[in-house]
């Protein structure tokens, strides 16, 4: 699927199969939150990001209303995908909101702020995917962090 924020003129490409596997993982942890990082690459001009996969955390803590992603072994695994023939890099995060709307919370906004501020992070505008999950449905919503706030995307 392709998503766009028309105001910023930025797009996201993500495979439907990848989306459904992310949903499957999220559902396994339902009704607790869960998440991971998104990897992929930017197209020339950096207005389009291709999300190619997710890395699930080896360590994490979660409850129905919070999720803390650890970083155990993350560096090694990111290195591995960076050294592939087509290098993939860290482009953002995903997590679930069980029984709630896929709208960033204050904590989520703060999380993005801290990620961008981290010395080990070279991207300025991470993507955040939130899956609003309930027993029957899954509502995904993509955001990008820019100008100290989040911008949402619509499907094309």
């Amino acid at each position: 699927m392709i998503l766009i924020n028309r105001e910023l003129d930025l797009t996201i490409n993500i495979d439907d199969a990848l989306m459904s596997s992310i949903e499957t993982v999220g559902r396994e942890h339902y009704p607790k939150e869960f998440g991971g990082i998104l990897i992929g690459y930017y197209m020339e001009g950096q207005q389009q990001v291709i999300i190619t996969g997710t890395l699930l955390p080896d360590d994490y803590r979660s409850s129905p209303s919070s999720f803390e992603r650890g970083d155990k072994g993350l560096k090694e695994r990111l290195k591995a995908v960076y050294e592939e023939e087509k290098p993939k890099i860290y482009v953002g995060e995903w997590h679930t909101h069980p029984n709630a709307a896929p709208i960033p919370s204050y904590t989520d906004l703060n999380a993005l702020k801290e990620i961008v501020a981290s010395d080990a992070v070279s991207i300025d505008h991470p993507i955040m995917l939130i899956l609003g999950l309930d027993r029957k449905k899954c509502k995904p919503a993509f955001y990008v962090y820019m100008n100290k706030r989040t911008y949402s995307y619509e499907n094309i």
Binding site: E33, G35, I37, Y41, Y42, Q46, S66, F67, E68, R69, G70, D71, L74, K75, L78, K79, Y82, I89, Y90, E93, H95, S105, T107, D108, A111, E114, I115, S118, A120, V121, S122, I123, P126
Partner: peptide, 11 residues
């Protein structure tokens, strides 16, 4: 767009 390792993050 370079190599990054995100810190432990709480959502």
């Amino acid at each position: 767009g370079g190599f990054s390792v995100p810190p432990v993050t709480r959502f």
